[in-house]
Write a protein that binds this DNA or RNA. Sequence first.
DNA 1: GAACTTACTAAGCGCTTGCTTAGGATGTGT
DNA 2: ACACATCCTAAGCAAGCGCTTAGTAAGTTC
Lengths: 208, 208
Amino acid sequence: MDVVADSAEQSRADSTRARLLDAAVAAFAERGFHGTTTRDIAAAAGLSPAALYVHHRSKEELLYLISRSGHEHVLALVREAVASSADPATALRRVVHDFVVTHARDHTTTRVVNYELAALSPAHLAEIREIRHQIEQAIRQLVEAGVRVGVFETPDPRMAAAALLSLGVDVGRWYRDGGDLVPEYIAARYAEMALRIVGAGSPDAGPG
Amino acid sequence: MDVVADSAEQSRADSTRARLLDAAVAAFAERGFHGTTTRDIAAAAGLSPAALYVHHRSKEELLYLISRSGHEHVLALVREAVASSADPATALRRVVHDFVVTHARDHTTTRVVNYELAALSPAHLAEIREIRHQIEQAIRQLVEAGVRVGVFETPDPRMAAAALLSLGVDVGRWYRDGGDLVPEYIAARYAEMALRIVGAGSPDAGPG
DNA sequence: GAACTTACTAAGCGCTTGCTTAGGATGTGT
DNA sequence: ACACATCCTAAGCAAGCGCTTAGTAAGTTC
């Protein structure tokens, strides 16, 4: 029993687990949780149907693992971006930019993360909702902070925060690979629009 | 054989058809197309499982009928709003307002309309995509017209139009009945943000 | 009141689903 | 060579799926 090897080197089981998760992400994103069979996932990972249950408890557990790591990734990204500058406008630009880049580049994962919540078990859904709440909180607080110090101007920070989230989340719905829009370009334009939404004055006043 | 009665009075078959459609909308919105069984739909309409097939060809046909009428409704709404004023800013305010009100008030239908496209048959999907294209075109052209006459200012009208659509579509995802936000309030705030996004100057310059 | 139409259901068919069981192939340490 | 752990599969079970078939009850028409 080699504890070091189990965690340091990628054990064979670990890489098979990961392959199953990748296959599940692709399948759930394309056909949805209920439109995907465990046989689909196993076959895409190059395994027999039974192998899925060697590495995971259930089909729902796959969704939960995908959803949790996806949400944790987004939460970390948002918190880092919020903390990256003392100026709310600079921080917001970075939040929206990074949020949008992730939702475009990882649109396959983010589609599962944002649109398959209803298939989670009640307990798992509650846990995921808590992370979502923290993501929303972080963005709303940033907008409110900007309004408080006078760099943002908006009649309802809560609605502005909802709109900013919508912009990013929805990119995961419409973005396609291989189009003429690269994630960074979309993110740059959306960050500019975000500053307009919150009524940030000078940093976005004139055309570049 | 009374042709007048068949179309004028609501025949019993017509109202049963409609009940099945309503049940399908509710079920598809809550659990998705693949998460819903034909038995669910029939039971919610107060019928036996077989009755669904008396009135509709297949489960997919139900989705298609819901999707088509939903998309046609939105297209009509957008075109009316676009044509409602010669001033692009006034027209855009109305477009976004009405678009958002519909996506909030009819969030059950719009969820099916926007998030169950993948379950449509290839032929039906092609037809629906054409309607979606026209909706997008109408909004994009309005933004471009505003830029052309100098009332809007934005580095990329296409991205601005994508953002406007996202704002409305995503309302259908997060809006819940019984909350403290009424559709008209959301629509009013979102219309203001829309004008900021496209860089409409004077009509939204100061706080109201 | 016989002939017909309309609106529906009971029963079930063939297939697929998520998941389990029992076991086998391939290392690995001694 | 032998014991053991690891990783995977063949086969299949009970339940549920979309949809069909064959039929019935309740009008409607003349």
